[in-house]
Design a protein around this nucleic acid. Structure first.
Lengths: 145, 145
DNA sequence: ATCAATTTGTAACGTTATAACAATTACGAC
DNA sequence: GTCGTAATTGTTATAACGTTACAAATTGAT
């Protein structure tokens, strides 16, 4: 049996929108999609996003001001908080696909870099822009579809 | 002799504002500071920022939507384009100070992570949030000054 | 001088994010 | 049950960040 929440579960709706695609969505794109469900204000969306971020169910792509579902490194959702050291994203500049990766040695390089400046790291943002395999194969640097 | 430009050199004014501080400035903060010099429109500021970014004189901190002068890894300005693989920033969450670092092995980790996903990297964003040496020393996690 | 190309300025708009406060719901105490 | 309180959600407005479209000025070649 699935629970039927008394209150509207905005976070659940957003998670559902983000699941099943590697494309990031902005808060306002999500708002548009949730309008039919009765969500009309940015605040509502941002609050739900905040919760999803805190619980590690989604990630924010800083360079796009957009959000993706957490899918883990190999497509399996995992259970880390967002901003954890050692995770990163590739972002295709042509098709917008985002993939997540986790790399212990990347994490140690980041910690070393911080330590070199006597900096105490808490979270890190790693975003690699370029072309995904599919787009790189389609001929060099064409415009967006 | 210094050149006296016929046109106002907005980029130069911005570079001057950003030089001499490790604190990032947003485009609109810069606009405020340039108002006395006759700059009144965001467009003007963004165009100048674009040029400075392209020439590698400044960097954009994605997680702050703000800009800092390029100071190189050890405080010496250097000559790379922005977004180059292998450079990164530490961002103090308490005092906002930003420091730049360059790390060849970080770069190779990023390239390896991209390669693992058959991704063709073009540029990368590495931003470490936490506490700078000074703020970490002042007792744990106080509020901002 | 005149023209085209480039750069800069202006005005308006679009997008992203937050603040302040009101209304609703959940839930335990009584 | 109903009262009181805390937590959540909704509403409205506004702040912060960024772009578009087009007009005006400057440059430099003809």
């Amino acid at each position: 049996m699935t629970e039927k929440p008394k209150r509207r579960d905005t976070a659940g709706l957003i998670a559902a929108e983000l699941a099943g695609t590697a494309k990031p969505h902005t808060a306002y794109e999500l708002l548009e999609r949730l309008r039919p469900s009765g969500v009309f204000a940015p605040t509502t969306v941002y609050r739900a996003l905040e919760k999803l971020l805190a619980s590690g169910k989604i990630h924010r792509i800083e360079s796009l001001n957009a959000f993706v579902a957490c899918r883990g490194a190999e497509g399996a959702p995992h259970d880390h908080g967002h901003g954890e050291l050692g995770i990163g994203f590739t972002v295709c500049d042509r098709c917008a696909a985002v993939a997540e990766f986790e790399d212990a040695s990347l994490q140690s390089r980041i910690e070393a870099a911080a330590a070199a400046g006597a900096f105490v790291p808490r979270s890190s943002i790693v975003e690699i822009h370029g072309l995904c395999a599919a787009c790189a194969g389609e001929g060099p640097a064409a415009g967006r579809p």
